[in-house]
Structures are given as C-alpha cells and as structure tokens.
Design a binder for these strands. Structure first.
Lengths: 359, 359
DNA sequence: TATTTATTTGACAGCGTTGTCAGATATCAA
DNA sequence: TTGATATCTGACAACGCTGTCAAATAAATA
C-alpha cells in the first residue's frame, strides 16, 4: 500500500534538532538518491519516477529541508527575488502597493526587496544599477514617477531585468504595464461635478513629473470642453501632490477679494486635505460654500470632515497584477506572449461622499 | 606622484558595456592580482599593501565591479540581508518602521526583506522557520505583537539569527531591545488630562495581545491613583487598535441615557478616530462636550477635526536604532557587549492639539 | 529475442564569492 | 650578512545548488 516505506534506516543524520538546517546532501543521502534527483523533485521537474519522487519528498519532509535560496540563485537562473522601486509620493499608496506585491510573492515562495529611491540626489541611475548588479532580481516593479524616467528604464533594461511599470505615462509599449484609465476617471469626476450643477470649477494639478498629473488634467479638460464649459485659467493651479502644496494652493484660491470657483477638483486627496484645512481656518464651509473632490481614496478621506468624494484607485489589485505578470513570466514556457505587449487595465470607482453640494 | 599608474594594458576585457556585469575574476585579471586580493580590498580587510589596494580599487572602478551579494552570502558568513517581520497593526506604523530600517540598510549596503506575518493562520512559526532556513538573514527586527510571542522568539532563536525587538512587553532581557517608555507616556497623558481639570476619564484599551496595551493601561491607572482619582470600571473599555473597534467603543460610551466621562484616553489614534466619527454622528461636540486624546501621532491626527492631542512615538528613530544595533553587531569585533543586554530607550513627546477642553 | 527509443538517474563542472593555509616578500634584530 | 618575525599574496577548497551530458534502465518496436 504505502509506496514510500523503503527508506534506508540508519543513514539518517540526527533529525530535526530545531534550527539544524539540512542541505540537499542530507536529503539525498537519506533518500538514497543523488542530489540531482532531489533537486529535480524540489523543482517539480519531470522525469522522476513517482516512487522516487515520493521517497525524496518524504526524506525532505523528515529533515525539514528547505532549499537554500542563495545557492539556488547562484547556480540557477532564478533568484526568487522581486524588487519594488519607488519614490515615496503618497505613503499609503506605496504601502498598499508593497502589501499587494508581498502577498503574491508569499504565495509563490518569492521574496520582495522594497527599495526607495532618492530622486533629489541625482543618483537614481547609480543606485539602481548598483542594486541590479549586486543582486540578480527576477523582476522589478516601477511605480510613478520612476516608471516615466528614461534613465531608470534604461538602467533596468541594461541590466536585462524584466520589469513592469505601474501607471506609466511616457514610452507606451516599452514593457509590461499595469494601469488604470486615469484620464477617464478624471473625466467622469468632472462630469459628476458638472451634473451636480457646478460650472465654476477649479483644478489642482499634481507634481509635473508624475504621469498621472497630465492624464488627470487631460480628463478634466476634456470633460469641461465636452460640456461646453470653458475652464478659467486662473482657477487651474499647480500643486505637488503633498498636503503642504494643498495648503499653498488653498491660500491662493481663497485669497481675499477673489472670485472663487464653486467646486475644486484636486488631483489627489492629500492636496484636497490641505485645501480643506485652509478652508476650515478661513471659515469657508465645505460643501456649503465650496465643493471639493480628490483622487486616490486614501484612508484619510473617511477621517476628514466632510468625508471626501474621490476616485478609488485599485492599488492592491494593481500590485497583484504587476506581481502576477512577473511571476508568471518566470514560470513561462518560452512560448508566452511578448512581455512588452502585456497591458492590464484595472477599473476605478468614483466614491461619492459628502464633500460636494448640489447646486 | 600617482601611485596607481601601473595597470597592465591590453589585458582588460571590453570595459563597461552597459549592463555587462563583471566578476571578481575580471577585476583580478585587470589589476594583475589574485581574486583573493580583490576580495580583501572589497571587504576592507587588512594586510594589503596600499599600492596594491589602490590598483585593485581602480580596476574595480573601471569595470564598475560590484560583488555579487548572493555569492558572497553563500561563501561567507554574512548575507547583507535584514528582515522586518510584522503583523500589520497600524499601517502607518509599519510604513515608518520600514522606511527607517531601509534607510539605514541603504547606507550600509544592506537590503531589507519585509515579511508580513499572518497571525490568523496559526502558521507563523512555520512561516518564519521557513524564511530563516531559506535565506540566512543577518538579523531580523520584530515588531509588536510578534515580539511578544513565545513561538516567534523560539523560532528565531532556533535559527540562530540575531534579532532585536521593538517595544516588547514580555520576556525582558531576552535579546536586544528598542523601546519607548509607554507606561510613562500614558502616565503623563493622563496627568495632562487631570491638569486640564478632568476627573471623569474613560480609557480605551488596545488589542490584548499587544504589549503596549498593558503598558499604556498601567500608566493610565497609576496616574489616576497617584492623583487620588478612582477610575470607573465601566469607563474602561476594550478595543483592538482598529478604527472599527473605536466605532464600537464609541457606540458603547455614547449609548443613550448613560453617564459619560468628560474625557476619554484612547490607547491609540485610530480608535480615537473611530470614536470621533461616532461622536460627530451623534452630535457630541469635541472638545466642547467631550475631550479625546490618542496615542501614536499618526498622520490622521492633523487631518481630523479637531486635531487630535496625542503621544508621538519616535517610530523612525526606533527603526534607526534597531537597524543600527543589527548592523553594528555584524561589524562588531567580537568583544562587543553581550547582544541581549542592549536596550535603547527613545523619548516620546506629548503633542498638544485641539481635542481637549480645559474644564 | 534483439534493437531501437523513451525515460530515469547520477557524475561532474560550474555559479562568484570567502575562508584556510601555506608560500613569498619585506622588515627588523643581532 | 643571517636568521627570525611580521606582512603580504595566492592556491585551492568550500558554500549549496542547478545545468549539462552521458550512462543506466525501462518500454516499445521489429
């Protein structure tokens, strides 16, 4: 019955003293096969008799054997390591991203190296080249704004590491991509404002180096024009995605004696929060005196009062998708579709809360 | 003058075609020394003539040589990899932690593996053992509540990996520790409330498996007793550190026809936010009708209205300290002080904002 | 049964480093 | 100068695994 009874006794090393790490040699000896066969079994390779396979598996089990990842990487082609490169724009965004990617890695016995990049130093290129030549990663994920920086792309490509870009703006088709239709989302949000009766709508742009900034702006403008409403240039202000820049923009918008829009569409939530704090201080009531909407759906939206109407980005799902692309590629049987042609577009949601008043 | 002029010409491989990774062999050949000597130079080991050292350094430079981390780990004793094990209690906390540790790793050419642990599965032990036997980490950092779980400590110890615990509660002196005087902080916060004239003070406890929960509770109780104020048992409620549990506790506190404290001390900010949202809905004004304080100083404190008075934990500094301990240990010259005796205590700050009214 | 072909298995050579140890060189006394 | 030390340097064997390729075995064909 039990096919796997025949383990040679007595040859086993002292089993499982907690912490005593066993090697492929130990398993091979215990199972009475060569290390190569053990290797085959551990990697689910074909051409191993079922009986042998079971024997090896049992031995590995008894010894609590876990292949050494470092040795594996060194000898083989895979490293079981993924990299997430980012420059912290919105902390919660990165956090969700990281969380999603790690989750997928876990499931595939991969590990994740999270590597923030300092853009101010002007050494991104060096830093990345350094990373990639030090550790052979099986793939890297590039978040905005890194995914739109030519030097970054070049460096990763030079290292010949497959990579996927999250929400890229520039260089379409250059590699696998995970995105969301940001322009469309901004378009719909603007439409929503229009439908609520607003015509005097202001817009706060994000950091100019982020692709999303342009996409969101574009969506806003299209919606306005399609509705036959001409946006007022002085109501389109430059922000930088940060809470502080939101404060600055808020001060600009609410300066004394100025005509004010009835609604402001902020390119992200954090800036909306900044504006709201200024409004609060100046006694401008939201949404009664002014409607505000954001973009991202960060946790703060439900903390702030009134709760912020915004666009939810499916960040975790995007993380899943990115990780999946890389992971699948590594198991891909050669004939997979060209990597660079992969594009996964995920749906957004307009989350209606309490920061907009119907006129 | 120039000591390093004498590189043998012509023996160099095609230099620095972008992405062409060079090995220690290439450097050795170009510098005209053995690979062992290159290794010595790269590791700043003694016993290399200055002249030789310079020659090697130059060669390494020319070739953009970066030692392969995997090979290094396999051959040597160090892996240049640290692990951050956590179970997500408060996202922003982990994020800051991660950020701090990564920063330090960067500076020392280390890398960080962030590994969330699923406590619900009951397989933490397996998961960690698995990680540690797969990759030989040079150290791991344990955040609450992992740092107080006996199985976790045992597993890490069994794998013989040095680790430092952040804000541990149980098993003092078991290993290096980074902490903050949470009990003292809670004591002072309670005193603050007392000084503001409050006597009817409620307290919301955190998740019972987090050490901080007990420390903060203890601090609260001591301060009350020292002030000769007996806390009312029905005003001490159990929460779980989450926003949702704050909502639940809020509902319990504010149920119809019940006597209500004039101030509530929540064991963390998120629960305070939850209570505030309930209060808002019920028309209980803060701080006019009720004062609330939190603990942690998460970003939301400045978003919510009124801004929340709280205790700032020096999370980033704690991360720095933890990383430093591990990193230093790896460079330690044997005679370092016993690892387990290291305790770094960092200062907290009471951040006074607008959520408390003076009675 | 004798061949041919397909399936399993193992020997062995790396992968790019570091550790060990012995040999080569330089330095210092006498 | 000659040993005797102290200082450098390099051969070579690991580290734990995978890739390659040939040998051994089983299955299929004639």
């Amino acid at each position: 019955m039990n096919q796997t009874k025949a383990l040679p006794e007595g040859t086993a090393p002292a089993p499982g003293i907690a912490g005593a790490i066993s090697t492929i040699n130990d398993v091979a000896r215990l199972a009475g096969v060569s290390i190569k066969t053990v290797s085959r079994v551990m990697n689910d390779e074909p051409n191993v008799r079922e009986e042998t396979r079971a024997k090896v598996k049992q031995a590995a089990d008894v010894l609590h054997y876990r292949p050494n990842l470092l040795a594996r990487s060194l000898a083989g082609a895979r490293s079981f390591l993924l990299g997430l490169l980012y420059h912290n724009p919105v902390p919660t965004y990165i956090m969700q991203m990281h969380h999603g990617v790690v989750k997928r890695c876990r499931e595939s016995n991969y590990h994740l190296l999270a590597e923030p990049q300092d853009l101010t130093s002007g050494e991104v290129e060096k830093s990345i080249a350094n990373l990639l030549s030090t550790i052979r990663l099986d793939g890297v994920i590039l978040t905005p704004p890194l995914c739109d920086m030519a030097v970054v792309l070049q460096t990763v490509e030079a290292a010949n590491v497959p990579y996927v870009r999250i929400a890229p703006f520039l260089y379409p088709g250059r590699t696998a991509t995970v995105r969301m239709d940001e322009a469309r989302a901004a378009y719909e949000m603007t439409q929503y404002l229009l439908n609520m009766g607003h015509r005097d709508i202001g817009f706060v742009m994000g950091h100019p180096e982020h692709g999303g900034t342009h996409l969101r702006y574009k969506g806003f403008m299209s919606a306005m024009r399609d509705a036959g409403v001409e946006p007022r240039p002085e109501w389109i202000k430059q922000g930088y995605f940060s809470f502080e820049s939101g404060v600055d923009v808020g001060n600009a918008f609410f300066a004394d004696g100025q005509a004010r829009p009835t609604a402001i569409f902020s390119s992200n939530d954090d800036m909306a929060f900044g504006m709201m704090s200024v409004a609060q201080r100046l006694g401008i009531r939201i949404p009664d005196d002014l409607s505000i909407v954001g973009f991202d759906d960060t946790p703060g939206c439900e903390l702030i009062w009134p709760h912020l109407t915004t666009i939810r980005q499916p960040v975790t799902d995007m993380a899943f998708a990115a990780a999946d692309i890389l992971l699948e590629r590594n198991n891909a049987d050669e004939d997979a579709p060209p990597f660079s042609s992969i594009v996964r577009e995920l749906p957004f949601t307009l989350i209606e809360r309490d920061s907009v008043r119907k006129l």
